[in-house]
Each structure stands twice: as structure tokens, then as C-alpha cells.
């Protein structure tokens, strides 16, 4: 029971991170029907930028750890968002009316470019960061096992909930969100009604990148090591999460993220750590077989 609870906490933390990345995939897919393969790399850049920003603030600026983190969070969000914007502007926008696979290949190319760019500019070795948040609270003390919730896990989950709330508000209550939903439904019509769809699509990439940046910061703190390669697997997992939840659906992306995180945590906890990725993908296939549009995806009625 204690063990179960601990895996639940670990899984939720991991799932929150996946969910934040998954939102970027799901939003972009929803609006331009494209798998943004470079999104995992944006998250990786977020991790690097956050580490650099944090070190700059604390070692050069001499700020406290807490202030350094806040500064790092803000600057990472801004700079990573700019990367997200630039990738869309350079590699995807010119292909808006191209055959369907062209942007996908462009995105895969972009992902390779960003990965190797980071490797070249920051070196191939993993970058360790000593843990900043120490301690936590003990939730339950069993005979042989103690369930604990670290402060960091609390911060991650709280921050994710906060971001989700802000995000939902933006999508449902602001004019930007309304324009976004309109563009998602029918880009041509939205453009005819005076929505600047190019700008809306840019905004979508920026939002996705911002959330990925936060996920990057969280991962840097949570695992304490990052390297240029983390974007690939996290990207695939997050995309799996987006599909699992129903691609195009924001709550679906979060739900999918949590599920993937939980599956991984429990699978590694109870079965084997080697096959945790296999488990996540197998669940995805199973879900798609019974619900071809994912858990919360709207069933597509094919117009004949």
C-alpha cells in the first residue's frame, strides 16, 4: 500500500511534466493538423536555457536560489517561446499549403538540427545540477517503507495546476482563445472573418513552447541532469500522451500525460524498468483500438 502510494506520487509528478509538453503537440495538431516533431527539442532547449539562466542569476547576479529560480522561470519562458516562434516561422509557415508530408519532414529535419545544435554549442556530456530543493513531507510511515512527497514534487504539481488554470482561462475566455478555437474549426472561414490566422498559429506555437519551457525547467530540477538528447524520448512520450487523450483536446493532453506518467511509474515499480516504454506504447495501441480518437477526443464523423 505504501509502495503503491509512492509510485502514484512519482507517476503524477512525471505525468504533469508529460502533460505540459503534450499540450504543445495537441494545440498545434488541432490548429494545423501537423505533428510538430521539433516540439520535444523545444522542451530540451527549455531545459538548457533554464539551467543557463539559473546559473547566470545565482553565480553572476548573486541572487538567492529562490529569486534565481523565478528569474530563470520567466526568462526561460520568454526565450524558449521565441525559439518556438522562430521554428514555426522558418520551417513550417512557408509550407502551409504544401502537401501534407512536407511539414512533417521539415519538422523532423528541424528536430535533428536543434538536437545537434545543442550538442555542438553545449557539449555532448550530461549536465548535472545539484538538488536545490531538499526535503519533503512524510505522508505515511509504514513498517518498512515511508511514503514521502518532496517539496519539489509539490511545486511541480502546484505549478502545473496553476498553468492549466491560466491556460484554460486563455483558451475559453479571451479573444485570443476564441480566435484560436475558430481557426481550429475552420481556418479559411476564420480568415474571412478577419482573424489573422498566421498570427494565431504563431501564438499557438508560442504557447506550446512556453509550457514546454516550464516542463524543461521542472525536469532540470527533478532529475538534476540534462543532455541534448532528452527531447526525443520526452517528445515521443508526450505525443503518445496527446494521442492517448485524444489529439486536439486540451484536457485530453493533460489526462494522457498523467496516464503515461502513472503507467511508467507503476510499470517500473512493479514489473520491469526496461519495458516501461513498451508498456506506454502498448496501452496507446489498446486504447486506439477501442477508441480510435483517444480517450477525450471528439469522434470524427466522416463526411461522405
Amino acid at each position: 500500500m505504501e509502495y503503491f502510494l509512492q509510485q502514484l506520487i512519482n507517476g503524477l509528478t512525471l505525468g504533469a511534466i508529460y502533460g505540459l509538453i503534450a499540450i504543445g503537440y495537441t494545440m498545434v495538431y488541432g490548429i494545423i493538423r501537423m505533428i510538430n516533431f521539433a516540439h520535444g527539442e523545444i522542451y530540451m532547449l527549455g531545459a538548457f536555457i533554464s539551467l543557463i539562466a539559473f546559473l547566470t542569476a545565482t553565480t553572476i547576479g548573486g541572487t538567492s536560489v529562490a529569486l534565481g529560480l523565478i528569474l530563470a522561470l520567466v526568462s526561460t519562458m520568454i526565450l524558449t517561446a521565441l525559439w518556438g516562434w522562430a521554428v514555426e516561422r522558418v520551417a513550417y509557415r512557408p509550407l502551409r499549403n504544401a502537401p501534407k508530408l512536407a511539414p512533417l519532414i521539415s519538422a523532423i529535419g528541424m528536430s535533428i538540427v536543434l538536437q545537434n545544435f545543442s550538442q555542438l554549442s553545449q557539449g555532448a556530456r550530461v549536465k548535472p545540477l545539484p538538488p536545490l530543493f531538499k526535503g519533503g513531507i512524510e505522508i505515511l510511515r509504514g513498517d518498512s517503507f515511508t511514503v514521502s512527497l518532496s517539496y519539489l514534487q509539490m511545486v511541480i504539481i502546484a505549478l502545473t495546476v496553476l498553468l492549466m488554470a491560466v491556460f484554460t482561462w486563455v483558451i475559453t475566455r479571451t479573444s485570443l482563445g476564441r480566435a484560436q478555437r475558430a481557426t481550429e474549426q475552420d481556418m479559411k472561414m476564420a480568415a474571412l472573418l478577419g482573424v489573422n490566422t498566421d498570427r494565431i498559429i504563431s501564438a499557438t506555437f508560442v504557447m506550446g513552447a512556453t509550457l514546454a519551457a516550464v516542463a524543461g525547467l521542472m525536469v532540470t530540477l527533478y532529475y538534476g541532469v540534462i543532455d541534448f538528447y532528452i527531447g526525443f524520448l520526452a517528445g515521443i512520450k508526450a505525443f503518445t500522451a496527446a494521442v492517448l487523450g485524444g489529439i486536439g483536446s486540451l484536457p485530453g493532453a493533460m489526462l494522457g500525460g498523467l496516464l503515461i506518467g502513472l503507467i511508467e511509474a507503476f510499470w517500473s515499480g512493479y514489473f520491469s524498468i526496461e519495458y516501461k516504454d513498451v508498456a506506454a506504447f502498448s496501452i496507446l495501441v489498446l486504447v486506439l483500438l477501442f477508441r480510435p480518437t483517444g480517450l477525450l477526443g471528439r469522434p470524427e464523423v466522416e463526411k461522405i
Binding site: P94, S106, I108, G109, M110, L114, Q115
Partner: peptide
Amino acid sequence: RMLAFGGAMVLIML
């Protein structure tokens, strides 16, 4: 090499 490879993918598509 890989940097150029990825770049080539993007450029040829564009």
C-alpha cells in the same frame, strides 16, 4: 554532419 543533414531536410522541403 548531422546538423547539415537536418538543415538539408528543411531546406529541400522549403
